[in-house]
């Protein structure tokens, strides 16, 4: 039940979504780099996500899709 999905190949690891999230549940994962070599954003607690889409609105690469 993923409300916040990040497109792994599109994210440039800019971190703007991390600070924009009111629930502070977005972070840059450090395990895997994407094709461009970035550590991508990920939602650390999908249940806490309120689907406000603020992370998606500030994302410069349209890499986040939100479901409610």
């Amino acid at each position: 039940m993923e409300k916040m999905q990040v497109r792994f190949d599109r994210c440039k690891g800019c971190g703007l979504c991390v600070t924009a999230c009111p629930k502070k549940i977005v972070a840059l994962q450090k395990e895997k780099r994407n094709e461009k070599g970035y550590f991508t954003a990920v939602c650390t607690d999908q249940n806490a996500c309120i689907s406000c889409a603020m992370c998606a609105m500030i994302c410069p690469d349209c890499a986040i899709q939100i479901e409610k």
Binding site: M1, K3, S51, A53, A56, M57, C62, I64, Q65, I66, E67, K68
Partner: peptide
């Protein structure tokens, strides 16, 4: 669940 924010067409 409905998509509420997506890539504009």
């Amino acid at each position: 669940m409905a998509v509420v924010f997506d890539h504009p067409k």
